[in-house]
């Protein structure tokens, strides 16, 4: 696995806009962003209504994911290129999610919507239509997904990487500073976690930093590469961004994303919490 296998730049995407085997998919926190304009030919995926079970807190199951991608016209052998706003947070989340269900060829558009817009590249409001497919998903690859018990057991044992902002990590804030402050019952972080904000893995324009810079970043933070790693944030989207950097770009072998993240951990009864303020 190398950077070129998992990350494409805007020039590559532009050159493949009419490639029938390449499916561009926009995934945003603000799902209305797509309506205002998206990359030509791109379809939309709603991380909240389409990727989550609408009753329980969990993902849609394998059959629902198969039905979803079939309806969207995504084939098993298609190259899926994901992009979105918020420095690709939700696109990285979708990338991890596609990997969870075993999609072979999935890539992220480096820099996402932001880089595309800052480059002054074209967006369109035209919604493409794709023929229905018969998509087959794999069982979830749980080697990349961490649950709460495993995360509690990882305290002091595995690398725990908290990728939220410093104020969320310390316990000063419960959510990123651009969102209303609500969510978990307690503020703080998992004891022994190191704080490497996801943003340190990205440049101002939303593209990922170089492999050398990323390796240095996590080394300086004290990540022991001989240990397994669990990344978490608030709801699992920013930690997908860091999971991508560690697992897909740097090639660390055993890295999991804890999608329950702080909204689950910070509401658990009886677990240890570290708070710095």
């Amino acid at each position: 696995m190398s950077r070129a296998d998992v990350l494409v730049d805007a020039d590559w995407a532009e050159a493949h806009l009419s490639d029938p085997k390449v499916v561009l998919i926009e995934v945003d926190e603000d799902v209305s962003a797509y309506d205002g304009g998206h990359i030509a030919g791109a379809i939309r995926l709603d991380w909240k209504t389409e990727l989550q079970d609408q009753v329980r807190r969990d993902f849609v199951n394998k059959e629902q994911f198969e039905e979803l991608l079939s309806q969207k016209g995504v084939g098993n052998d298609d190259t899926v290129v994901l992009y979105g706003g918020n420095n690709n947070w939700f696109a990285a989340y979708a990338y991890w999610y596609f990997k969870l269900y075993g999609h072979q060829d999935v890539k992220l558009l480096d820099g996402g919507r932001k880089k595309w817009e800052l480059d002054g590249r074209a967006l369109t409001a035209d919604v493409p239509s794709r023929d229905k497919t018969s998509y087959t998903a794999q069982d979830q690859d749980l080697s990349i997904r961490a649950f709460r018990d495993e995360t509690v057991a990882a305290i002091g044992v595995k690398n725990l990487v908290d990728v939220r902002s410093p104020d969320e990590f310390s316990g000063k804030l419960l959510a990123p500073a651009h969102l209303p402050q609500e969510q978990s019952q307690r503020a703080g972080h998992i004891p022994t976690a190191v704080n490497v904000p996801w943003s340190k893995a990205a440049n101002d324009d939303g593209t990922f930093r170089s492999d050398e810079e990323l390796a240095e970043l996590y080394k300086e933070a004290g990540l022991d590469t001989s240990k397994q790693t669990i990344a978490y944030c608030r709801i699992g989207e920013r930690s997908s961004h860091t999971w991508f950097a560690l697992h897909e770009l740097l090639g660390h072998k055993d890295v999991k994303n804890y999608d329950g993240s702080w909204t689950e951990y910070g509401s658990l009864v009886g677990v240890p919490v570290a708070k710095d303020v």
């Binding site: 420095n87 902002s165 410093p166 104020d167 990123p176 651009h178 904000p197 943003s199 340190k200």
Partner: peptide, 11 residues
Amino acid sequence: LLDSSGEFTAE
């Protein structure tokens, strides 16, 4: 939004 040490906080 960057904090007093230049650290990214939000966008």
